[in-house]
């Protein structure tokens, strides 16, 4: 019984301990790991024997804060020459953490894939093939052929990066596969670049 008669005392001790030991931690800055701030499309001309010639043309889409309400990304216009063939490579970075996400995408090539859509393909202004090493369908490296008689000098290209999709889904090996959602997964990037042809 003695034990029980001291119960209020034990309770009080427990209570004091409990209440004192329970404070929230100071918040710490969290760097958004998966944020993509810069997407760069690099074009370099390919000659008739498929060798790289000339200088590299870079066009960027930038969202310095990552996903933040009230800010809109800046997207540069892609400016290319009619009738030429280019190698297009894509670089993806997180400038907040100074991280090269291109390498991560390459390392997880089995779970990622770029799709290229929009009027520029619908009107046969561009044609595109995946040219990644090992012949995989990924889209970090591609060959783009610009029509010599496009009919218009202004168009646009939509670049979509899908994550966690079923890459063997019927039709998914086509870089212009517009039903990419059917292959499952989710979108990591969805950017529409204006296209100007000279």
């Amino acid at each position: 019984m003695n034990m029980f008669s001291k119960l209020p005392l034990y309770l009080l001790i427990l209570l004091t301990l409990g209440f004192a030991s329970c404070e929230s931690n100071d918040p710490s800055e969290e760097n958004d790991g998966e944020v993509i701030t810069d997407v760069t499309l690099k074009f370099q001309e390919l000659n008739a024997s498929n060798a790289l010639v000339g200088s590299v043309l870079s066009f960027k889409a930038i969202d310095p804060q990552g996903i933040e309400v009230g800010k809109t990304p800046t997207v540069q216009s892609i400016s290319l020459t009619k009738g030429k063939k280019y190698q297009m490579t894509i670089e993806v970075t997180n400038s907040i953490k100074n991280e090269d996400i291109t390498q991560e995408i390459l390392a997880e090539a089995a779970e990622h894939q770029f799709f290229f859509l929009g009027p520029v393909f619908d009107s046969n202004i561009f044609s595109i093939q995946y040219a990644d090493a090992g012949g995989i369908a990924l889209g970090l490296k591609n060959t783009v052929t610009v029509s010599s008689s496009p009919g218009t000098n202004n168009s646009s290209m939509r670049v979509v990066l899908r994550h966690d999709l079923n890459k063997s889904f019927a039709g998914a090996s086509n870089p212009n596969f517009s039903n990419f959602v059917q292959a499952g997964g989710e979108t990591d990037l969805d950017i529409t670049f204006p296209v100007i042809l000279n």
Partner: peptide
């Protein structure tokens, strides 16, 4: 007391 355990790589939805 509510704390976000650091290291998620995502800006917390609710504060500490």
């Amino acid at each position: 007391a509510n704390s976000n355990v650091p290291g998620t790589g995502v800006t917390p939805l609710i504060p500490n």
